[in-house]
Simulated scan of single mutants.
Amino acid sequence: MKYDSPIVVMGLMGSGKSSVARLLAAALDRSLRDSDPDLAARYGGRTAAETFVLEGADVLHERESRHLREALAQTPPPVIAAAASVIDNPADRTALGPALVVWLDAPASVLAERMRSGEHRPHFEPDLEAMLTTQRAHRGPLFAEVADLTFDVSATTPEEVVAEVIRSLDEVIRSLEQSTRHDD
């Protein structure tokens, strides 16, 4: 038996979604759908930061939502690095139902430091730590609502996250196999 659902890696900007999703896709021999490069390829090479400046947050978030839904519908199921904004959309949270959702969490100070190293991320406010503190307070309960696995990435490397996700998948598969045997 094989775990055959999408795996969605979520978290605020700077949490390491792309790194974890890339490693996880390689380890599971799955395709990778990553919001930032996928949207840049679709929309003329623009980064999320450029889309935010040129077209606004609403356009950016609508595109990120569309990306998630398209990726969730893909077969075979991919590993998806989803934009943080999708968690704000109740329909997107519902669409995550059949997926294994991995939430990468960290204190706002850690995320802000990581964001300073990447200009592809939109800075919605000049004070990154304050922005991320606000986002974390609002989005944290929403991520917790949909997350199957949660990791503090200030204390866990991407490789450790991937190893734990794979271990968890193995447990799910064993549990499904046992319940199938008991049903026979």
Rank of each mutant, 00 (worst) to 15 (best):
A144E: 13
F52P: 01
E113I: 04
R66I: 14
E164Y: 00
A82G: 08
I173L: 13
W103G: 00
D38I: 04
V9G: 10
A48V: 11
A27H: 07
V146A: 11
T94Q: 14
S19G: 08
T180V: 12
R22L: 13
R136T: 12
G11T: 11
P6W: 02
T157V: 13
H61A: 10
P90Y: 08
I166P: 04
D170N: 14
L132I: 01
V9H: 05
A147N: 03
M10H: 00
L111R: 04
Q135T: 03
A108H: 04
A144S: 12
H61W: 15
S154P: 13
L104G: 03
G16N: 10
S65N: 14
E70K: 11
D34F: 02
G44S: 14
L128I: 03
S117L: 15
V146P: 01
P126H: 13
A71K: 06
D38F: 11
H138E: 14
A81V: 03
A26N: 11
V20A: 08
M13F: 11
L128Q: 09
P76D: 11
V9W: 05
H182T: 11
V79K: 09
P76H: 07
F151N: 11
T75Q: 05
T156M: 13
E171D: 05
V8A: 04
D148V: 02
E50W: 02
E70H: 13
R167N: 04
A83P: 01
R116H: 13
P76N: 09
E145M: 06
S31L: 00
H61E: 14
S31I: 00
D152W: 03
M1V: 14
E64T: 04
S19L: 10
S154A: 15
A137I: 10
V172L: 15
M13Q: 13
L39Y: 04
S175G: 09
D34C: 08
S35G: 10
R46Q: 15
L12G: 04
A155Q: 15
A112I: 03
G14K: 00
A137M: 11
T75E: 06
G16M: 09
S168K: 10
R116L: 14
Q178I: 05
G56K: 12
L149V: 12
D38C: 14
A84R: 03
P126L: 10
R46E: 14
R136G: 10
L60D: 04
D127E: 09
L23N: 06
E159L: 11
L96T: 06
D38N: 08
S65H: 10
A99D: 09
F143N: 08
V79N: 06
D148S: 14
E159F: 06
F52Y: 14
A21K: 00
V79S: 03
R114Y: 01
A83I: 09
